[in-house]
Design a protein around this nucleic acid. Sequence first.
DNA 1: GCTGAAGACTTAGAAGCTAAAGTTCAACGC
DNA 2: GCGTTGAACTTTAGCTTCTAAGTCTTCAGC
Lengths: 185, 185
Amino acid sequence: MGETSGAGEPTLEEQIAAYQREFQDLDPQVEQIVSALSRLNRRMNVAYGRQTAELGITNADWEVLKALVLSGAPYRMGPSDLAKRLGLTPAAMTHRIDRLVAEGLVTRERDESNRVRVIIELTGDGREKWMEAMRLATVFEADLLQDLSPQERTALGEVLTRLLIRVEDAQPDAGGRLSDLDDTV
Amino acid sequence: MGETSGAGEPTLEEQIAAYQREFQDLDPQVEQIVSALSRLNRRMNVAYGRQTAELGITNADWEVLKALVLSGAPYRMGPSDLAKRLGLTPAAMTHRIDRLVAEGLVTRERDESNRVRVIIELTGDGREKWMEAMRLATVFEADLLQDLSPQERTALGEVLTRLLIRVEDAQPDAGGRLSDLDDTV
DNA sequence: GCTGAAGACTTAGAAGCTAAAGTTCAACGC
DNA sequence: GCGTTGAACTTTAGCTTCTAAGTCTTCAGC
C-alpha cells in the first residue's frame, strides 16, 4: 500500500505507522525518538566504517587504538585491561594485538619489573592513525550537525547526556560484545 | 590522574576531556552529542539483546521477524527481498531461514505460481514472539525517556528526525553488515 | 627450593559470514 | 518442440573472529 521503493528501507514515518498498525499500545512519540536514535547510529557506524576502511584498518583495530589513546600518555595498557575495556576474552585480545603489532600500530613487550605482565604501547604510527581517523570523523560529525543552531546543539547535548547518565546508572556493567542489531528497530 | 575506576569505562565527561587533550581541534559540543548518541545506542542494544535472549531468540532472528512484520499482513517475503532488506548475501539468508523454520517462527514453501520462488511466511508463533519482544522493548523505552517532559520529547523527536533525514539523504544506500563499532566513540 | 596463583598464550571448536558452483524452473528464440 | 539463457534459491568450501579450556612462564610466600 503505502510502500515507497521496492525492498528498500521504509522511511521513519512509514515504519512507525506500520508498527502502530501491528502493535496497538505503541507510543508513537517514544518510538520516533528511539527509532531515530537507532537509525542515526546505524548511519554513523556506516560512515565510521568507511573511514576506517579508507585508512586500511578494521573497526576492531580502531577500538583498540581508541582505548589506548584514552588511557593518556604514555599510551600503555596490559592485554587484560584492554580485554576488560573492550569486553573480550583474553584469547581474543591476543589475536587482535597480534594483528596490530603486525601492522606496526602498537608494540608488545614484557614488563621488566614484573615479567608476567605484558605492556601494549601505541607507536607513533598508531597515534598518527588514530589522529587521521579523528580528522575524518570530525568532518563527518560537523556535517551531520550542520543544520542545528547553537541553542539546539546545547539542548540536544544536555538531553542526550541526561538520558545516558540514566541508562548507565541503571546497567552499570559496560562489557559485552554486541555485534549485530545495528539495524532498524 | 582523573581516572575513576580501574579498567572501567570513563564517564562521558572524562572521555571528552581526554579526547580534547589529544586532539586540539575537537569541538566539545559536537563530540558530546555524537558520543552520547553512540553510548546511548550501545546501552539500548545491550538491553534489546538481553530481551531477545530472554525470549530464546537471537538478534539475527529478531531482525528477520521485524522485516516480516513491517511488510504487513500476510507477512510474506521472498528470501532475496529479505536478504536485500537485511544487507546479507542470499546464502547467509538461507541459513537464517533454516534456523527460523526449525524454531517454528516462519514457514518456507514454494510459490506454486512460479516454482523457482520461495515464500517465507511468519507463523502465529513468530508473530507472537515479535509481540513479546515489542512489549519488553516498549517497557524499556518508556523507562529510558521517563525523565523527559512532553516538550522535551517533542523537541528531541523533531531534532533527531531532522538529523536522520539529512544523513539518510546523504548516504542513500542502506545495506551493509556492520557488526562491531557499537563501542565508545 | 617448592608450591600456588596470576597473566598471557595456544589449541580446539563453534558460529556466522562470503564467494562461487550447483540445482531447479520459467521464458524466449529459432 | 527443443535448447539456451537467466533468475532464485541452495549447497559447498573457506575465512574470520569469537569462546572455552589447557599450557607455559613468572612471581610471592613458606
